[in-house]
Every structure is written in structure tokens, then in C-alpha cells.
Design a binder for these strands. Structure first.
Lengths: 211, 211
DNA sequence: TGTACATCAGTGAACGCGCGTTCACTGATGTAC
DNA sequence: TGTACATCAGTGAACGCGCGTTCACTGATGTAC
């Protein structure tokens, strides 16, 4: 009633110096990521919302991204890199391939539970982020699936996992882990048992796969 | 250019007879279900879209549903009933509890792959369908999870599955199956191996769990 | 050293669109007297 | 049998909103001569 703020919470950021136009690009990406994580829904992130969060106007975003799809695609790439960091760190800390497999599983689940909205965007929403898709090759690399296959192969070579196609085995392992993360995220209201379900599942998977 | 149709493809349905007002309710539900299955996205189903599909006007929908959330909630209930039919049929055809478990798993996956958009709505989207939630008790019943727990318990009693809490074991089994369905649905572009991954996963799960 | 010009980093206003929902209404059908 | 009235099953028009995107522009900073 007392007419406090002029518009919405529109704090204008200062215009970048001559050579620093790319700085806005980073700020847009960061803001889009924040909003995506906050809402967990690509549809809920709007160009206008991002612009307001950054403190610029909507058209400015088109100086750095062709359209909304390209913006969201870039955000996803960042999330994938974060996931890679999780599993990379985990697998680096063990020499035994079976231990490494276990640790990677735990790291994967931990990434999902600590970044549920990011996980939702990466694996739970339709793969059309805007118009753009990730192709098969990109997916292989980005989802750290390559590392998983290699680790499984090492286990098989060492005679620790029953002989079989490493790729297929890696798929079943990934599938099981993904099921856990996605259900814990989308159905937090389900009366989950009061045990460490992650360990429970990983041990079940291990037992199902080991020699 | 030749001005054929008057509005959009607006074919008006005839008004119901005096006592048959409830018929529109069914038609709305059916149309909403069709649209939901076609788009696979609750956000993409609009009151106006449903109205046009039915052949009535948007306000008519409010004669039968309080708001959009209530409409979508009702559609979900129908899908859950369909899922129950799948698993019911499958489990009825085997006496051995382990066989029954296997069959239920296959039926669950089959439901998901044959009704991907329904599955997406039930298990992949946020659990806020509009404003309404399914509560824990409803979920237990609707997802046919109770049957799964009972079957697992039967397996344990028969000494076929390693001793443990049936509920927890059922969770890990569900989690694994869900992971398969959801990844096959959301990532059809992933270079899945050319094997029956469903059987592969179910056998892995069984091997991980059986005595 | 001065000035015209190019470029960079944006802005302001508007476009047309589809959305959920509300409101006042209409016309057919039944019922009471 | 006639008529006033209630109810049922809707409709038409409008509300205000947020959206992606485009267009013409602006003002500061650098560069060439």
C-alpha cells in the first residue's frame, strides 16, 4: 500500500566493461542453474525469471544464448560435470575393482540425493531440454557410464564378477542405482524402511553379480 | 484461406439428457487421459485442451471437477487401476512364490513399456499432481506394492529368499524394476545392449536375493 | 590533441499467445398446483 | 389440461497473468585519421 519498491525486486547489475561481455553469460548460467535447482522443473524456469535473478532484462539473454533451449542445455552440461566429479573422486580412492564399483555406486546415489533437482533434470525429465537432445555418445561420456563399464570389465577380468558382457552388466547396475535415486526423490512420502537402503541395494546388486 | 471450419476443430457434442449429467464427467476423464498419454506431461494437459477434445466449453469442466488438480488426480487413479490389473493377472498364473515374483516383475516392466506416458505420470513426475498428493497409504495400495511384499514374504517363509525383512527386500526389488522402466522410457536414445534387459535385471535381482 | 566513427553491452516497449478460472446467462426438461 | 416455477446441463465472454521473442533504440568505450 505504501508503494515501497518500484518494480519487482529488480536490482540492476552494473553494465560490464568493454571486454567483459562474457561475464553476463556466466551470471545467466549461474542464475539459471540456481532457479532450475530451486524448482526442479525446466518448464518452471523462465527467461524472464532468469533475467530478473541476474538483474538484467530478458532481451539481454539473447545476446548470449540463441533461445531458451540452448540456455537449459548449457546448464545440464554443468550438472553432468558435477556428477562426474562425484564418481571420479570416489573411484580414485580404491584399488580393488570391486571396492571401486561399490564406492562409485554410493557416490552416484549421493550425488542424486544431495542434488535432487539436478538429478531430476538430468535423468527424470523428458530428454527434450527445449528442443535440443543429448546424443548417445554425449550421454555415454557425460553420465560417467564409460567409467562404470571399465570398472565392471576389470571385475570380470579379475574373476570377481561372473563372466558376461561388461556393458550389459553395467546397464543392470546403473538401472538399479537409478531406480533407488529416482524413487527416493520422487516419492519421499513413501514409507521407506528405516535402513540404509542404498547399502542394501548395492549389496543385493553385488551379490547378484559377483562370482 | 477458404474459411472452412468456424473455430478450431470444435465439434460440439450434444447436450446430455436430464438425468445423464454424469456422462460428461466420464467423457472429460477419458479425454484427459488420452491427452495425458499423448503428451506424457501433466503440464501440457490444459483445461481448454480437454474441453476441446470432449467438445464442450472450458467452464463445463468445472461442473464436474473443482479444479485442474482434481481432474488430473482422477486420471491417475485410473492408471493405477490399470497397473494393478497387469500385476494381478500375472501373479494369478503361478503357484510357486518365486515364479510369482518373477512374473510380477515382468508384468510391472511390461506395464511401464506398454504405457510409457502413464508410467511417466505415475512415477516420474513430481508427486504434486496439481495440488493434491497421494498419501503413503494410498500409494501402498495403488502401486500394488502390498502384493509384492506378500509375495516376497512367501518366498522367505518357503526358505527360497535369504532371511530378512520382506518390506525392505520388496523395496530393493521395486527400486531395481523401476530403474529399468524409467531409464528405458526417459532415455530411449541410450545405446542399450541388444539383449532382454528385463530378464537380465530380474535374474540379477533374483540371484542377489535368493538363498 | 581533436573528432568522426564503429563497436560493444546492453535497454524499453511491445507482439501475440495460451493459460486457469469466474460470472452472468440460456434454453430445455421436469414438477406442483 | 394449463401454467408457473425449479432444476439441470450447460454456454459466451471476459478477467488477469506470465510466457518467449523481436525490434528499434541508447549510451559508454575504444579506434583511425
Amino acid at each position: 500500500v505504501t508503494g515501497a519498491a518500484p518494480g519487482p525486486s529488480s536490482i540492476r547489475r552494473p553494465r560490464a566493461k568493454r571486454g567483459e561481455g562474457e561475464r553476463l553469460r556466466d551470471e545467466i548460467l549461474a542464475a539459471a542453474e540456481r532457479l532450475l535447482v530451486k524448482t526442479g522443473d525446466a518448464d518452471a524456469v523462465s527467461i524472464r525469471g532468469v533475467a530478473e535473478a541476474v538483474g538484467c532484462t530478458p532481451p539481454s539473454i539473447y545476446l548470449h544464448f540463441a533461445d531458451k533451449g540452448e540456455l537449459l542445455f548449457s546448464v545440464c552440461q554443468r550438472h553432468f560435470e558435477e556428477l562426474n566429479r562425484y564418481t571420479e573422486d570416489a573411484s580414485a580412492s580404491a584399488d580393488d575393482p570391486v571396492d571401486r564399483l561399490r564406492l562409485m555406486g554410493h557416490a552416484y546415489v549421493r550425488f542424486g540425493l544431495e542434488n535432487p533437482e539436478a538429478y531430476r533434470v538430468l535423468f527424470l525429465s523428458a530428454n527434450k531440454i527445449g528442443v535440443r537432445d543429448f546424443d548417445a555418445e554425449q550421454l555415454m561420456e557425460l553420465t560417467c557410464f564409460g567409467k562404470l563399464v571399465a570398472t565392471v570389465a576389470a571385475c570380470i577380468d579379475a574373476g570377481r564378477i561372473r563372466p558376461g558382457d561388461p556393458f550389459t552388466v553395467a546397464c543392470t547396475v546403473w538401472v538399479a542405482l537409478h531406480g533407488l535415486v529416482s524413487l527416493l526423490i520422487t516419492r519421499p512420502d513413501f514409507p521407506w524402511p528405516d535402513v540404509d537402503l542404498t547399502s542394501e541395494l548395492i549389496e543385493m546388486t553385488m551379490h547378484g553379480v559377483l562370482t
